[in-house]
């Protein structure tokens, strides 16, 4: 087992609608999909990034794509029209989530 950044085993894309962000996360290799399921949970994201991801987080699983979709309410500091963040769309929330350290067998 080793602690590795998620980005070494997974890729991701962020999208926004209003004040809701979604980040999809896909394992490069099928064998790492269980790592994503175990480590990239709503609770973990709230714990690590709760000051930014302020609302409810829902996870959708897509086993046929070895991927998940994290849908995060109140996660964009108001959304692109209201946020004063330079990245008002939260385009880089994918990079934020890929920075998580995960346990890889």
């Amino acid at each position: 087992m080793s602690r590795r950044p998620l980005r070494e085993i997974a890729h991701a894309r962020a999208g926004d609608k209003g004040n809701r962000s979604n980040v999809s996360v896909f394992a490069y290799e099928a064998e790492h999909y269980p790592v994503i399921l175990a480590e990239v949970t709503p609770a973990r994201l709230k714990q690590e990034f709760g000051n930014l991801l302020r609302g409810e987080i829902t996870r959708y699983e897509l086993p046929n794509l070895n991927g998940i979709n994290m849908v995060m309410d109140q996660a964009l500091e108001g959304g692109v029209n209201e946020s004063l963040n330079l990245d008002g769309h939260g385009k880089s929330w994918s990079s934020l989530i890929l920075s998580l350290e995960v346990e890889v067998p």
Binding site: A12, G15, S24, F26, Y60, L62, G67, N69, V71
Partner: peptide, 27 residues
């Protein structure tokens, strides 16, 4: 794959005026 879920919430219920699309069986 990345684009399939771009700005999608529930992949089984992607709401559009024409249809509630379901991407979960995408192959």
């Amino acid at each position: 794959k990345e684009q399939l879920l771009y700005e999608v919430h529930d992949p089984t219920r992607y709401l559009n005026p024409d249809v509630v699309a379901d991407f979960s069986g995408a192959d």
